[in-house]
């Protein structure tokens, strides 16, 4: 499987966000993003389809000490 590459990074940063990036930096960013995204993908294997990002605050409150 191929990783995220420098040309994709340049297209996103310069084409979509309007932020200039050198070829060398784009290659480094591609490596970093690949590592981060794969780390999240691995962690997300256990994630239930129904889990919502907005549920976190309620989870915190539910775990608060009682009484």
């Amino acid at each position: 499987m191929t990783g995220f590459d420098a040309s994709a990074v340049k297209a996103i940063l310069e084409g979509l966000h309007g932020v200039a990036v050198s070829e060398e930096r784009a290659a480094a960013i591609a490596r970093d993003i690949t590592t981060l995204a794969r780390g999240v993908r691995e962690a997300a294997k256990r994630l239930a389809f129904e889990e919502e990002p907005q549920g976190f605050a309620a989870t915190l409150a539910a775990l608060a000490p009682k009484g």
Binding site: R41, A48, G55
Partner: peptide, 18 residues
């Protein structure tokens, strides 16, 4: 700026279960 939206949202969705 190059982090995919789905990656970011999965990181948020994982907070409750984690």
């Amino acid at each position: 700026l190059a982090i995919p939206a789905a990656t970011y949202l999965d990181a948020l969705r994982l907070r409750g279960p984690m």
